[in-house]
């Protein structure tokens, strides 16, 4: 009985933690991305779903300086780079 209660508590904690991360990612988290051909003062704040969509087609890359830059202007690439 004690083990079962412990499992329920652990399950609830994990579910809450996972749901919190998921909701934060969907609703609040964004990443600063530099456009392909623009000076470094222009920064786009990309939401996480938009960033996921972009990485699927190699639409963003990380520069040596640590900044993330978009690899296209206008229409996103159609195919994955790998």
């Amino acid at each position: 009985m004690r083990i079962r209660k412990g499992k329920i508590v652990l399950f609830c904690l994990l579910s809450l933690c996972g749901a919190a991360l998921f909701i934060y990612g969907v609703c609040l988290h964004s990443t600063n991305v530099l456009p392909q051909q623009a000076d470094d003062s222009t920064i786009l704040a990309k939401s996480e779903p938009a960033l996921i969509k972009d990485v699927t087609v190699g639409g963003v890359t990380r520069e040596q300086s640590g900044r993330i830059r978009q690899t296209y202007t206008g229409k996103a690439p159609e195919a994955c780079p790998t």
Partner: peptide
């Protein structure tokens, strides 16, 4: 990208 994937990890 050195970005934490909140959606993937949460899901």
């Amino acid at each position: 990208l050195h970005v934490f994937p909140f959606i993937a990890v949460g899901m």
